[in-house]
Each structure stands twice: as C-alpha cells, then as structure tokens.
Simulated assay, not measured.
Amino acid sequence: MRRPLFSLIVALFVLFAPVSAFAVNPDEVLADPALEARARTLSAELRCMVCQNQSIDDSNAELAKDLRLLVRERIRNGDSDEAVLNYIVSRYGEFVLLKPRFSVRTVLLWGAPVLLILAGGVSLLVFARKRAGRPTGSKLTPEEQAKLSELLEKEPSARGGRD
C-alpha cells in the first residue's frame, strides 16, 4: 500500500515541479542575456496580484504576464532596476513587492517579530521569577512535625549505626 502511494506522490512532484519554469514564455525573453537576467531578478521580487503567493516570474496568470512584459519594456527603455520597481509600485502599491520596503508604513511589519520575541522573553522571565519565590509542597501537619522532631532528636547509633 505504501509503495504505490509513494510512487504517485513522486510522479506528481516530477510532473508539477517544473511548472513554474514554464511561466516565462519564450516570446517574452529579451535577446540580451544581461537584460534578461535583470528582468528575471526583478520579476522574482514582484508579487502576482492574482496568485498572491507567487512571483510574477513563477505565475501563469495573464496579469503576471503583463507585468513581466512591462518590466522587460522598462528595462529595454533604459530604466534602472530601482526605477522599474518604483514605476510598478506607483501603479499597484507596496503590496506588489514580495519583500516590502522598510518605511514608516511598514515599521510594524518589520518590527512585529522582534517585539513578539521580546514580549515572550519578558513574560517568561516574569513568570519564572514569580514561580521561584513560591514554596513547593504543603506544610507538615502537627503529627508529621512531631514525628520529624522525634526522628531528628534520636542519636545516630539508634538509627542503625549508620553515620
């Protein structure tokens, strides 16, 4: 039973793993390899607005194709990488970037993990200090206290000669 299931999973992986490699159509590729490399780098940084968890370089959506063509057109026109990104962000907003820029609007986004880790550490420290001051167990009953006192008062020789 395990072998056929494993074979099916491997076959599906092999079939669908290269799907993202076919997202960029041959008619979109720039003739100059250096410009194409720049276009691929920029495309990997831009989010597909349809898929939202893929870059436009990996997506087969029509909007992703339009954005890839736009990136290549701007590069062909001589725009720098930053100018291309700024142009696309001006049209689609910061959400189009897979890695948002650090700005006043994204401070909480970038700072939240650090703040949560610090808050968790402080909480653990406070909890540990409170817990360290508490006595463990319960108090002895008067009978148990009397028996303990009796045992402690006996001489070591009375306890079996062990010392």
Results as ranks from 00 to 15, higher is better:
Ser20Cys: 04
Arg131Asn: 11
Leu63Gln: 14
Phe22Pro: 00
Val10Tyr: 04
Leu148Cys: 04
Leu8Phe: 09
Glu73Cys: 03
Ser59Cys: 13
Lys99Tyr: 14
Leu15Thr: 09
Leu118Arg: 01
Leu151Pro: 01
Val84Gly: 10
Arg68Lys: 04
Pro26Met: 07
Arg129Trp: 01
Asn77Lys: 14
Met1Val: 09
Phe13Val: 05
Ala119Lys: 03
Ser7Asp: 13
Ser80Arg: 05
Ile56Thr: 04
Asn77Gly: 10
Pro4Val: 13
Ala17Cys: 02
Glu62Pro: 10
Thr41Tyr: 07
Phe102Ser: 08
Ala21Val: 12
Arg40Glu: 09
Leu97Ile: 05
Pro156Gly: 07
Ala112Phe: 15
Pro4Asp: 12
Leu148Trp: 09
Leu116Ser: 10
Leu67Gly: 04
Ala146Trp: 11
Gly137Phe: 04
Ala21Thr: 12
Ile75Pro: 04
Pro113Asp: 08
Glu28Thr: 02
Ser80Tyr: 04
Val71Arg: 15
Asn60Asp: 13
Pro4Cys: 07
Phe127Trp: 11
Leu67Ser: 03
Phe13Ser: 12
Arg2Ser: 10
Leu12Phe: 06
Ala31Arg: 12
Glu45Leu: 06
Arg91Pro: 02
Leu35Ala: 08
Asp57Phe: 14
Glu155Arg: 14
Asn60Thr: 09
Asp81Thr: 12
Val19Arg: 05
Thr136Met: 00
Gly111Trp: 15
Glu36Ile: 00
Leu5Gln: 07
Asp58His: 12
Ser123His: 10
Leu85Lys: 13
Phe95Gly: 02
Lys65Cys: 07
Phe102Trp: 09
